[in-house]
Every structure is written in C-alpha cells, then in structure tokens.
C-alpha cells in the first residue's frame, strides 16, 4: 500500500519534472540559436568580404558561399599603382596620422584631465560642459569652416590638416573619460608620495601615471580607431599625397571605367580591417570597459 502510493506519487511527480526540464532545455537552446543568428548577422558582410577578397577576379559574382578559386592576386592588385591607386601610400598615411594624433591627443588630454579632476576652480563645470558640448558637433557641419580655415592657412594637402581635426574630434571624449578615471583615484596617493619626498612632478610620474596606464591605454585604442576610421574630413582636406586608407578605398579605380573593382576593394578592405580585428581580439575587455565607463557611472 505504501509502496504503491510511493510509486504513484513519484510517477505523477516525474512527468511535470521532465516537462519542465524539456522546456528549460528548449529555452536554453533557443538562446544559443539566437546567439548564432546574431553572430551570422554581424559576420555575413565581413565574411563575404574575405571570400571575395581571396577569389579569382573572373569569378567575382560566383555565389558559392565558401572559399573557391582562391588567389592572392587581388592583394597584389590592391597595392599596384598602375591604375593610379596609392593604397600602400594611403596605408602609411593612415598609420602616421593615426599614431601622431593619438599620441598628441593623449598627452594633451591626460594633463587636462588630471587638472580637472584634482583641482576645484570656479567655472570647472563650465569647462567640462564646454568639452562635452563640443563632442556633439556634427562632423559634416565642420567641413566647410575647416575647409576655409585650412585654405587660408594653405594647409590643404598637408598632414596637419588631417591630424588636427582628428585630435580635436577625440579630445573631448578623451578628457572626459580620463577625468572620471582620475577622479576615482584617492587623493591621498599624491600626498603620501610627497611625504615620502617626491616632488609634485615625481608624484605624478611615478605614482599616478603607472596607476592610470590601463585607462590611458584604453582611451588610446579608442582614439586610434576613431582616427583610423575617419572618412569625411579626410575625403575633403587631403590630396593624393596625404590620402588616407578610408578615402582610398572609397575611390578605388578599377581596370574598367564603369565597373567597381569588387575583388580589389574587398582585398583592400580586408587589409584595413585586420589591424582592427587584432586590436579587438587582444583588447576586447578593455575596449568594452572603456566604451561603457563614461556612460555607466
């Protein structure tokens, strides 16, 4: 009698349990399926770029979704200057412009942020508001005045005409992010350092900077990406000698006048994207933290 009840109980008990487990399993596999769809959705264009970049030009419009007719020719064509393209030069330009503007923006930004975080002065919040307001200006609105300014200075076609706007575009965010970072560091740090006999300069160099290095580095990555990707200003204020990669890609000339050189552009696009892919792979966590830091606090 007791045994019978027990079996009956367990029988009625286990049915909903399996059902619940099944439902849970279905819910979790549904989540993973969705995750796969998201990855596909984000990846599809980039994947297609790679497939086309490595495909023989005669099979440009072949719809096979795998790597077929693999060749490196497109990469060679991308760097060739026969058709008036200067991709190699543009790559070097972008590298120079990206590095120089990142370094300057960071040096200038670190000092400004340190002073803003460590010192209360009248109008400080006006300064911060000014910086933030400036970060919201639409780039396209600034092209005309910058064009006029740089024409007057005869800077069109020089590196500084591209470097300086890159700096002023990333500076507001750099200063803002670093200020919120410095503000979180305890004030006692410098005090302790000075008690130990450091000068103010030494306290900053030897105590604050090493601690701030990760934040500075994260900001530098974001600044470099922003400079590397800048298109609008560069498309108007550069010439053949100072053209950046983003502009070079948009204006790639092919062998046929009215035919987009798809495979060559895809190869060039792959080359431009690779440094960014590596950066994200290596610094993903830092980038994620840096992007959300300012907004979350």
């Amino acid at each position: 009698m007791t045994a019978a009840t027990a079996t009956r109980l367990s029988a009625t008990d286990s049915a909903p349990k399996t059902k619940a487990r099944n439902r849970q399993r279905w819910a979790s596999s549904r989540t993973y399926i969705s995750a796969a769809i998201i990855v596909l959705w984000c990846l599809l264009p980039a994947y297609w770029m790679m497939v086309t970049a490595f495909r023989d030009v005669g099979y440009t419009f072949d719809a096979t979704p795998f790597f077929t007719h693999v060749t490196m020719d497109n990469f060679v064509t991308a760097f060739s200057t026969d058709l008036g393209n200067h991709f190699g030069r543009a790559l070097l330009n972008s590298l120079i412009i990206g590095i120089v503007s990142t370094v300057i923006a960071l040096v200038v930004g670190v000092f400004a942020a340190y002073a803003l975080a460590r010192l209360n002065f009248r109008g400080k919040f006006l300064v911060l508001g000014f910086i933030l307001g400036a970060s919201m200006f639409p780039g396209v609105a600034l092209v005309t005045p910058l064009f006029q300014l740089f024409t007057d200075l005869s800077w069109i076609g020089t590196y500084q005409a591209l470097i300086i706007p890159d700096i002023s575009f990333v500076l507001p965010l750099t200063v803002y992010t670093l200020t919120s970072f410095f503000r979180e560091m305890p004030w006692e740090l410098e005090e302790a350092a000075r008690i130990d006999g450091c000068t103010q300069g030494q306290a900053f160099r030897k105590v604050i900077m090493p601690l701030a290095a990760p934040a500075v580095f994260t900001t530098a990555i974001l600044a470099f990406i922003s400079a590397w990707n800048e298109y609008l200003i560069a498309s108007q204020l550069s010439n053949d000698a100072t053209q950046t990669v983003t502009v070079a890609i948009a204006s790639f000339a092919g062998a046929q006048p009215h035919q987009e050189p798809y495979t060559t552009v895809m190869a060039a696009g792959t080359i431009v994207t690779i440094p960014l892919v590596i950066m994200v792979l290596v610094f993903q966590r830092k980038i994620v933290a840096g992007l959300t830091a300012g907004a979350v606090k």
Partner: peptide, 11 residues
C-alpha cells in the same frame, strides 16, 4: 557585434 561597429565606414 563590436567588429561590425569598428569596421571603417567606407569598408
């Protein structure tokens, strides 16, 4: 998702 965001716009 991050990759889609940081690929240069002209690419």
């Amino acid at each position: 998702v991050l990759l889609a965001w940081i690929v240069p716009s002209s690419v």
